[in-house]
Design a protein around this nucleic acid. Structure first.
Lengths: 156, 156
DNA sequence: TATTGTTATACTCTATAACTATA
DNA sequence: TATAGTTATAGAGTATAACAATA
């Protein structure tokens, strides 16, 4: 490696945004084949983790969006038969969001799509390179406080 | 390194989209302080590379958007005094887009912002780690045919 | 009175297609 | 007639605030 003086800074931030944007775009296409939007994927995951103990307000908090937007998002998933609204017996103002059987099926297919997407995107790397890339990205995510499994694309 | 069987695939694609999205968001904030949108930055760069030999149609081709969108984008930059439309003498239908002096000033400041952004984003990595990350991302960008310096966020 | 979810309104962004001026 | 740029229109997406039901 040649020495080009102090701090030969590599402009990696742009590459990161560029490749990351490409990854997001490809992922949107893939889940689109399942009839979903990228935002739906994250919502299904959150619901599955808090099965039955999740109101729309709490979900809005997780996503960082207003309550009215959650209405539209859940409307779409309910219309597709993937999510069910059940009035809480203890406080009939709020809903308990649950996955339907079809919703669980879609989540299983989502995992397959995710794996295929991952192979598609990083298949040209060796296993070592992929592990290194994952470690470095994980380090950046941790340093900047990015929550695990939550894409920053919800809030405006 | 423990052996967990064949193909212990790391889900790096999501991390990529997540960190990449964060990088893009931060960059938008930074250039926002210069009164610019991320799309403006790419356009200024393209104009500077084809100084005077760039019509709006050709620019639309580069960006992958329709001509009417270019009108709005250039309107904004012209109103800020960064870009000038000059009717071509040879074919008075099309414009030759050029940077104003103020536009060149802003580009210089953009480079500083870009460096600061890069330090901000990857400052927690060692120089070696940063170089490795850049190399791996560059490899992915090349494999997937991402044009140098063009963010995929223009086309719908 | 306070809170959950919903609806109504307005605003932004973008694409498509009609239009003008040059060729 | 064909092309460069512009304007007009319509559609999607989203945020804000008013609203109804429940507490």
């Amino acid at each position: 490696m040649t020495n080009r003086g102090p701090e030969p800074w590599q402009p990696v931030a742009f590459l990161l945004a560029q490749v990351g944007g490409f990854a997001a775009q490809r992922f949107a296409e893939r889940v689109g084949e399942l009839g979903l939007q990228p935002s739906d994927v994250g919502i299904l995951r959150i619901i599955s983790r808090h099965e039955g103990a999740l109101s729309q307000q709490i979900l809005a908090g997780f996503l960082g969006v207003g309550p009215s937007r959650v209405v539209a998002l859940i409307d779409g998933l309910e219309k597709k038969g993937l999510v069910a609204r059940a009035r809480s017996a203890r406080d009939r103002r709020n809903y308990e969001l649950t996955l339907t059987d079809a919703g669980r099926d879609v989540m299983a297919r989502m995992r397959q799509v995710g794996s295929a997407h991952d192979r598609d995107l990083t298949g040209s790397l060796t296993a070592d390179e992929r592990a290194t890339l994952g470690a470095l990205l994980g380090k950046l995510a941790a340093v900047h406080g990015l929550a695990e499994g939550v894409h920053p694309g919800y809030r405006s």
